[in-house]
Design a binder for these strands. Structure first.
Lengths: 156, 156
DNA sequence: CTCATATACGTAGGCGCCTACATATATGTC
DNA sequence: GACATATATGTAGGCGCCTACGTATATGAG
């Protein structure tokens, strides 16, 4: 007969499931605060708050997601009139995203909500005895040698 | 000015990113093995290997994903002629999924590939100093009190 | 036997990421 | 100045999950 594999060891699925749980809870939280907010906006808006205007490419690197995903988020934010794109003065390829007036107002509105989420995350991290450090380790281990390389080695 | 929040503490995003990294690597690995395989099939096929025929609802509970997601995977597996659904003898609502002949053959073909992925996962888990245990802790902490509840408390 | 409630499963539409590809611009070499 | 290569960004289509809703069947109380 065939061997079954321990689902609990399916790390990828567990990461995905926990991520979905957290996203769903954050969404419910936004909903109870009566704010129209797309979760993927947070990363971009947060980066613009911290660093001022940034390009799609810069945001892609800072957020460690593909430039396509950033571009889609930019589009959505522009449609909601929260940010605008301005061409770079010297490089014709680059557009820099910056807040509109209503974007700045939304960020002001979101501050206590984001602070509550941040504090809740810190509490969770403490109770889980530093899940962030564990994710750092996983990140480092996969950077050192990918699952693909490791699995390929096991087949030789 | 507005406060920026530490992206590194955005636990949900980090979980998602690591999950995507692992999924992408697994997909590349399947591609190099010249097998046409959808990643979401693994969980369902693996459960059927371990437990014999199971219903959508049972799989949903075992895999801890929604019954809709299981139903979509069932549809895809049926279209690939790897499983078939049979009505339950006593409960007209229930259909049980079971392997077809080519499904059983695919599982046989996949065994060394899945074993390689499993061994690579165990190696990663060891080097990351028990990421599985850390995910267990996060699971328990969120079960005890959700992000939603914690964030709601912070706003009071 | 009726009816309220619960459960199983399927479809529609959505979310947040991705790869592949295309177009425009920049850079560096010859 | 020409040309090869690199970079920035946008669109198309896809993946794997989700909620909401609808339909069919089961169960238990009265």
């Amino acid at each position: 007969m065939f061997q079954g594999f321990d689902d609990e060891a399916a790390i990828g699925k567990r990461l995905r499931r926990l991520s979905d749980l957290i996203d769903q809870d954050a969404k419910r939280f936004y909903d109870t605060q009566d704010v129209l907010f797309e979760q993927r906006w947070f990363g971009v808006l947060n980066q613009l708050v911290m660093h001022g205007p940034m390009s799609v490419s810069e945001l892609s690197k800072a957020l460690r997601i593909s430039h396509v995903s950033v571009s889609e988020t930019r589009k959505s934010l522009e449609q909601a009139k929260l940010i605008t794109s301005k061409p770079d003065k010297t490089d014709g390829r680059v557009k820099r995203l910056t807040f509109t007036k209503s974007g700045a107002r939304l960020v002001e509105t979101m501050q206590p909500i984001w602070l509550a989420l941040e504090e809740a995350s810190q509490e969770i991290n403490r109770e889980a005895r530093n899940i962030v450090a564990a994710l750092d380790r996983l990140d480092a281990v996969l950077t050192k040698k990918s699952l693909f390389e490791r699995a390929s080695d096991k087949l030789k």
